[in-house]
Amino acid sequence: MADLKEQIIEQLNLQDVKPEDIGDDQPLFGDGLGLDSIDALELIVLLQQKYKVKLSNAEDGPKIFRSVRTIAEFIESTRIPNA
């Protein structure tokens, strides 16, 4: 999850934020890290580029991108069938 946090910081150019500043279960949007809809698109691009994972159903977005942990779980879940 530390790697994922670093990639999120780099992709979203989060200034003055270190991986340890982001809690595993901290909400990424709204009151948490304060990300917005453009960041959501950037996260989709990140998953596609780094993990070759595509979000097939846009309605799953809010659930998947709730926190770093939910993103990590989503990546893991999509890797199992290909393993």
Partner: peptide, 9 residues
């Protein structure tokens, strides 16, 4: 990136 997965920003 061959026109795929482009950063929106």
């Amino acid at each position: 990136q061959n026109e795929e997965a482009l950063s929106p920003t």
